[in-house]
């Protein structure tokens, strides 16, 4: 199931940039046999359409002092989940946060430095207004995360 509005040029741009977002437009243009201008325009279009949300450098958290990943499940007072979600995403070290249909109301994936840091993070979330319950789990032996989604 592929987005109907995209042609071969668009999908190739996406494929190349997902692997290396610093690839020059000139290089992509050469591969597709079109002008760099075309690539630049398409890139802008993909951004305007909200297909490309963002671009970033992928940092290895283990090299900058983080030691593991933790998954938080958060229960909140009904109708306040959006509000709490906005607060959670502001916490440094949070990689992903989302509303969830399932066991918890919100889920958040966080990189953690050490046990003390883990406890602090839990406290921070617990102290937010409307939060009723926080459950943390520690991820060990984590298989590589899909980098275009989780950016670790």
């Amino acid at each position: 199931m592929i987005n109907m509005n995209l042609d071969k040029i668009d999908t190739t741009i996406l494929e190349i940039l997902e692997k290396d977002a610093r690839t020059s437009f000139r290089e992509i243009a050469r591969k597709l046999d079109v002008s760099p201008d075309t690539i630049s325009k398409r890139f802008q279009k993909l951004k305007e359409l909200g297909i490309i949300v963002d671009s970033t450098v992928i940092i290895n958290p283990k090299k900058i002092g983080y030691s593991f990943i933790s998954r938080f499940g958060v229960d909140v007072k009904p109708a306040y989940s959006s509000q709490v979600l906005e607060e959670i995403i502001k916490i440094p070290s949070v990689i992903v946060a989302s509303k969830l249909v399932g066991k918890y109301d919100l889920i958040s994936i966080i990189v953690v430095k050490n046990f003390q840091h883990l406890c602090e993070l839990r406290e921070i979330i617990l102290e937010m207004p409307y939060v009723e319950k926080v459950e943390a789990s520690m991820w060990i032996n984590t298989m590589e995360l899909c980098p275009c989604y989780f950016l670790i």
Binding site: M1, I2, E18, D54, I58, R71, G102, L151
Partner: peptide
């Protein structure tokens, strides 16, 4: 290996890639 690479973030919904499930 402090930097592992670079990428763009694509909205999977717009690409018709569907739902994330845990």
């Amino acid at each position: 290996e402090v930097i592992r690479g670079s990428t763009i973030v694509v909205d999977p919904k717009k690409m018709g890639q569907g739902n994330l499930v845990i």
